[in-house]
Design a protein around this nucleic acid. Structure first.
Lengths: 96, 96
DNA sequence: TCATTTTATAAGTATATGCTTATATATGCA
DNA sequence: TGCATATATAAGCATATACTTATAAAATGA
């Protein structure tokens, strides 16, 4: 599941902060359906959870995930995604 | 690289002890070429190293691998392979 | 209610990946 | 030297995986 580069980056991101779908589309420069499909898989595995707010859907880490601590250790070895996140502010769709 | 189940199990094994190719073939119940190909990839990535002793080739963890500590953390979360290893003794080809 | 926006889903496709089969290489031993 | 054993490599194939395109669903706002 986390062998996929994009999904691993998504998980790293949601570990740092709740993210909107549109932010992933912008950051990873991927099509919206491609992003949605990765999010779906992560959600189905119980790794992330979603929260709807109006038109937007935000994803965050599911702290109840059985391997939460393990994933945390894992992503601690990856470079932060914050920079990329904060760089797009205006560009992306949601208010974040 | 470590997203593959077999390769992850191989790495777990060589972390615990140096292993012969034939042992992997026996434990994972896989064809010899399939095992060899996984070992080749792990070796090419510098994760494991090989040592020839007569007809047999033994693989072990490469302690110089840059992400050695990370991989160690990772495999610590996996169940030990020792049991499977010790259960085959006579069956496999090498003297181990 | 209708158009727009955001996201999800479904279906099709291209590529990556891991396997099998066949063969080569290397070592040991008679 | 010739054969057996252990392993590596190459080529082909089947399947898994991640993408694209098209469409549906849900919410917003005029």
């Amino acid at each position: 599941m986390l062998g996929d580069k994009t999904r691993l980056a998504i998980v790293k991101s949601v570990f740092e902060q709740e993210c909107c779908v549109c932010e992933f589309v912008a950051i990873f420069d991927m099509s919206q359906p491609a992003v949605s499909q990765h999010l779906r898989k992560l959600k189905d595995h119980g790794i992330v959870k979603e929260r709807r707010s109006g038109q937007w859907i935000y994803y965050s880490m599911n702290t109840d995930y059985p391997y939460y601590a393990f994933v945390q250790q894992l992503v601690n070895h990856l470079p932060s995604q914050r920079e990329g996140m904060s760089n797009l502010q205006q560009d992306s769709c949601c208010e974040n």
